[in-house]
Structures are given as structure tokens and as C-alpha cells.
């Protein structure tokens, strides 16, 4: 989306996913986190903030179904100062706000850059939704889809846009696998069949190394974005 480039400098704000801000500087990398209700999106965002906040300038946008729940969790956990967390209201349709009509989210990320920037990274968390919810390329540069072992070990086999096309698939709560009878090897094989070379991370935030692999993936995305 480069409509604005001919007359951006000091012009009005950009209209979509331009890589540069109106002042000509490069904007923050935007990474979306989507996935079903309760799979651990907010917990992953919180862990990423703790892992990365010392080395990067970070902010978070949440898209709650009932407004502000996830934002308030992040505030309670004090993973970032409150001015770095913004909640977007989604009118009962979280997938609409991240895919079909991204205008409120674009405003949220731009306002964060204006008010607490410069920023290196903005995490955009979707409200818990279904297996078809994916982020628009107009909103994020890369997306993580978070599922968990307790949601059923057949989810990778069933596929769907999130599981199949997300830049990173995270299978969360691996510590619960023995208790819910989920077969991690089968989940890994099914994910591989659906996603070919796209990466998959199995994680448990309850034990070491926690969010390390996902944080490393985010660092690699940032390096590529800056290149």
C-alpha cells in the first residue's frame, strides 16, 4: 500500500500498511496473535512482554469480545506500563476487527506510536475466536496462531486458515498433554502435513524454557523487518 508515498512527508497519516510513518521513519513491526478462546494468547503476550521488554520498545493492542478484559489482565500483571496497552472494542465480532474492517486497530497502533514511540514492536492480540480467524496483511506483518493441547489434539489435522497459514503455529500447554490424553507426536505430524515448511513451536509457559522459542522467532522477524 503505497498510495501515500508521493506526498507523505508531513502529510496526513497513512491509510494502511505503509512501512513508513508520516514523518518518513520506519514504523514498528506488527505481529498478530490469534487463536481459539482459552488457548493462551494473553498469557503468551504477557510472557513475550516480560522476555523482550528490556531489549525492545514494546506496545500491545488487545481486541476483546467483552471490552478490556485482556487489557486489564496485562495491566494487573504489570507486564508493560499502562500507556503501552490499548484495548480496541470489537462489537461482538473480534474477527471482523482484525480482518474485514481493520480501521480501529490501525488507529490504535498509530496512536501508540505517536504517544509512546518510537516503538520496535507492537503485538496485536485478537479476541478469542474460531479456527478461521486470521489477521489482514493490512494490519500485521506476521501472525502467530495459538492453539493448546487441551482443546483437542485433532485441531492440527482439521486445519483451517489459522493453523495452515499462520507464520508461526504455537501449540500451548504441553504440560497438560498427559492429563487430557493428547498425543503431541501426532499433533506435530499433523501440523507438519498442514503447514509444510512453516514453523511450529510446542510450549508450556508453566516450566522452562517457557516462551523462549516464540521470543526467538519474534527477534528473527524483527531482524528481517529491519533488514
Amino acid at each position: 500500500m503505497h498510495l501515500d508515498h508521493a506526498h507523505t512527508h508531513n502529510g496526513p497519516s497513512a491509510v494502511s500498511a505503509d512501512a513508513h510513518r508520516p514523518d518518513g521513519s520506519r514504523r514498528a513491526l506488527r505481529i498478530g496473535l490469534g487463536g481459539p478462546v482459552g488457548s493462551g494468547k494473553t498469557a503468551t503476550v504477557a510472557a513475550l512482554c516480560r522476555a523482550l521488554r528490556e531489549e525492545l520498545s514494546l506496545a500491545v493492542v488487545t481486541n476483546d469480545i467483552y471490552t478490556r478484559e485482556d487489557a486489564e489482565f496485562l495491566l494487573r500483571e504489570a507486564v508493560l506500563p499502562p500507556e503501552r496497552i490499548t484495548a480496541v472494542e470489537t462489537g461482538a465480532c473480534p474477527h471482523t476487527a482484525i480482518r474485514d474492517d481493520i480501521s480501529a486497530n490501525l488507529e490504535a497502533v498509530e496512536d501508540l506510536e505517536d504517544e509512546v514511540g518510537p516503538l520496535d514492536l507492537i503485538l496485536v492480540e485478537s479476541g478469542g475466536d474460531n479456527l478461521t480467524a486470521t489477521f489482514s496483511k493490512g494490519l500485521v506483518d506476521a501472525q502467530i496462531f495459538v492453539i493448546d493441547v487441551a482443546g483437542g489434539d485433532d485441531i492440527p489435522r482439521k486445519g483451517g486458515p489459522g493453523v495452515t497459514t499462520a507464520d508461526l503455529l504455537v501449540v500451548n500447554k504441553t504440560d497438560l498433554a498427559p492429563y487430557v490424553g493428547s498425543d503431541l507426536a501426532r499433533m506435530a505430524a499433523d501440523a507438519k502435513a498442514q503447514r509444510a515448511e512453516l514453523p511450529v513451536v510446542f510450549q508450556s509457559l508453566r516450566s522452562e524454557p517457557g516462551v523462549r522459542d516464540v521470543a526467538d522467532w519474534v527477534r528473527a522477524q524483527l531482524t528481517a523487518w529491519r533488514a
Binding site: E89, G91, C93, T96, A97, D100, D101, I102, S103, A104
Partner: peptide, 10 residues
Amino acid sequence: RFPAGGHAHS
């Protein structure tokens, strides 16, 4: 469906 934010308002 014009993407101008109306879906979030009642």
C-alpha cells in the same frame, strides 16, 4: 461491509 468501523457500534 465498507471497512469504516461501523460494526463495533450499535
